[in-house]
Amino acid sequence: MSGQGMNLTLRVWRQAGSEDKGEFRFYQLNNVSEHMSFLEMLDVLNEQLIKLGEEPVAFDHDCREGICGMCSLMINGQAHGPDNETTTCQLHMRRFRDGDTITIEPWRAKAFPVIRDLVVDRTSFDRVISAGGFVSVNAGNAPDANCLPVPKQDQEKAMDAAACIGCGACVAACKNASAMLFTSAKVSQMSLLPQGKPERARRVLNMVARMDEEGFGSCTNTSECEAACPAGISVDNIARLNREYLKAVVFSDEGI
């Protein structure tokens, strides 16, 4: 904890607004403690910038404990940095070495336009969910919770999928900027549970259609999303979405 910290060179994407061209700028940051989180390191950078009269680097963050999905960042070309199943806010500087140059870029996707510096607009994800990522049940008319037994294995698999934090790393890491992992996580959760069965065909058709409308690319099964996902969502969910989709297209009454 004591003693000299690391000296780092940061190569940070700066962009004043969505219409601005943007460019990389280099910053020198000295005496960085290995116990800092990556975002705390950026806090220190920003304090330094304010002192120098340069506007601080904008980056999204909130809970700083890996669950809200607000933080992002492409760090040296990897979504959320080098660790697996870790968000940027939980990445610690002990993963870097003295003298490193760290490149920090925003998520890049047509469906995630840059707002400023490293901040992007991910409302397209909300629109995908609003297309069908729910069970149509109003408050007040639910039956007793134990009326509907759910096999433990199904519940566990549904929970695995439901753990998605909606950060967008899957889109950022995919060479096609595809949102299949995100969308499939929600479709999977609902299709594994009996509660989701009544509207499963509608759900998958509408969500996939919306995903395409938003300008996300298509899945070519490279599994980069799974590797980048901080919540450990598996590409098995994508297969499940595909299965649901084909079933809905071929057998359901939707779209007649």
């Binding site: 049940v137 408050a139 007793d144 919770a145 134990n146 037994p149 433990k152 929970m159 509660q195």
Partner: peptide, 20 residues
């Protein structure tokens, strides 16, 4: 009622092997 409502929405609460 809260638990009923959340289960109906598809919240994956922990379960026993019997499904409850």
């Amino acid at each position: 009622n809260i638990i009923d409502q959340c289960v109906a929405q598809g919240v994956p609460f922990a379960r026993e092997y019997g499904g409850t």
